[in-house]
Nucleic acid binder design. Sequence first.
DNA 1: CTGTTAGCGCGTTCAC
DNA 2: GTGAACGCGCTAACAG
Lengths: 360, 360
Amino acid sequence: MATGRPTIADVAREAGVSPSTASVVFSGKAPVADATRRRVRAASDRLGYTGPDPRAASLRRGRSGVVGVVFEERLGAAFLDPVKTLMMDGLAEGVAPLGAGLLLLRDEVPASTSEPAPPAEPALSLETALVDAVVLVGASGRLAASLEILRARGIPVVVIEGDAGAGIPRIDLDNLDAQRQAAEHLRRLGHEHVAIVTLPWSGRRRRGLVAASREDDPSIDVTRERLRGAREVYPDATVFETAASLIDEGWEAGAALLRAVNPPTAVIAQSDLLAAGVIRAAEECGLRVPQDLSVTGFDGIALDGFAPYELTTLAQPAAAKGRAAADAVVRMLSGEDAASVRFSCAFRHGNTSGLRPRLD
Amino acid sequence: MATGRPTIADVAREAGVSPSTASVVFSGKAPVADATRRRVRAASDRLGYTGPDPRAASLRRGRSGVVGVVFEERLGAAFLDPVKTLMMDGLAEGVAPLGAGLLLLRDEVPASTSEPAPPAEPALSLETALVDAVVLVGASGRLAASLEILRARGIPVVVIEGDAGAGIPRIDLDNLDAQRQAAEHLRRLGHEHVAIVTLPWSGRRRRGLVAASREDDPSIDVTRERLRGAREVYPDATVFETAASLIDEGWEAGAALLRAVNPPTAVIAQSDLLAAGVIRAAEECGLRVPQDLSVTGFDGIALDGFAPYELTTLAQPAAAKGRAAADAVVRMLSGEDAASVRFSCAFRHGNTSGLRPRLD
DNA sequence: CTGTTAGCGCGTTCAC
DNA sequence: GTGAACGCGCTAACAG
């Protein structure tokens, strides 16, 4: 006998039963006489058989028990975002009933370097990955291409916050409406001069004031929608674009905005991390929040180390988004078709927004 | 013909070549005449063939192109830790040459609830997951059991910061020595009354002062080693245990320690996040860092929103750890055996430690 | 360079 | 409740 690991056939032979019987003992898909079960167990112990080979099982079943999760950024960057982290958590929980694991995939934009692409190994990609379904996260650029590949492969897809085509379930957020609520809140408090600190507009990672021309719309959906919501109330607000959702980026934005000749009395930040940075910058400029400056965030994450502030923000159900995506996957894998889901953010009035300060 | 997707055999027939030839066109494992390649391509386009079925390919090759990464915590918790995030990044990069993806696995401690375990689907677990190799991260409790399962399955394993058995490559850090360096640094600065703020001691997530009895050692390796290192210099230091590596936890610890009748002049925190929290607490007590209180961290991560402080800390090569684990995996998969690697931390003198303040 | 053959290890018919 | 046989889709050998 070859030295390879024992197969179920070996076990069956050793136990003196047929392979199908032995198989059933492991899968539990059919009743087996107790004595038989025991003999099979004993045989497999003797042989050191450790259960069906997942590769063969997956070929036979046509299922692998793996759900791909596709990011467009490097993992380190993606997990820096608390919202994505929570979403992954929800996703993991949601696919559990399916008994599936999450396969992290990066859908890299080819990055047209002159490099002829290091030959490397046949990279695992959307085209070749062994997955039963795929969740596309925060996709923007390559989305269309990715969808096409997966459609051709006949793999069910769910898109979280991205513009999928018809027939593809989306998990979305009412970004525009939610952000408008925050703006209206500030309006009610009397603020007239408001600045907007945005998330990145595209992959290009720029930082600085955005020229007034409105023609250039952010290509990243989330940024665009939140911007539009804010602009419905403050069409002429100053807009500052950041390179990432980080406290430090918010700090830079805040420092730049507050040092201007005519600083705003309120800042609408497109994420809680950015808002935290703006508040830190305000503190350093000697401004009190919310007395001198109001700041709103977005996401409603638990901001570590930010007490006693509680951001006025829009709490989004991040984990629920992940779970909803998972549910859609589960449904599609059982043949039903899954509907899109649109979540709403909850406005949360913290202690970082207040009445417009009296003008000097 | 059945309505199923076309197979490579169909393509071969359509192109008038043999299956193996068609296969080679896709795998590129052997030279193919240009004309033949074109004919095969054309045929597969006509049929809508989207490349080899990964399930079948993986059965045939005996490889799946997937590396499992096992966490003991829920994903959300794991990715809250910047060190783990960076490590994942390194891991992802390191397995790229292998063309492999990362499968997130959670090795849950069974949690002996009375619940008879919801029957659910045959859950994907270490026993059944389709992986070529596995990386165990920050393992502690179930480690032995997990290793046994994987050993039986004959799956190569690498352990990051955990006590594996003989013959299993480990990726480690000189936690004890590094932490001792920080302590010695404080000693040189004249500090005598020092407190240690530790990471969790075990899964139990307690928060508070640790009784002086030394018999109770932390069961989590990292915590234990760093504690020992600090105690080599300050055997009688006050020890405060936290429930997680968070700024807020550090804040709690700092607040408790600094409000004591005889507060320390220096704090050794076992992570940068904890250190940041201690510093915030100090600020709120009206203490200046480093003039009134010295604080050292551990990890050397980029602390978002913490300027102008630069922690005195021990910078650990977090991404390199991931990459080293990946390299070990790559080596093991090509039959060579991989050595363990022990990384060193680099002491970094920031602006959060200084001479012991004059006694009143 | 291309074709032929022979399984990879399992789960599932279908009979008994 | 059990056994016999087939083939999932592909690719590694080897032969031509």
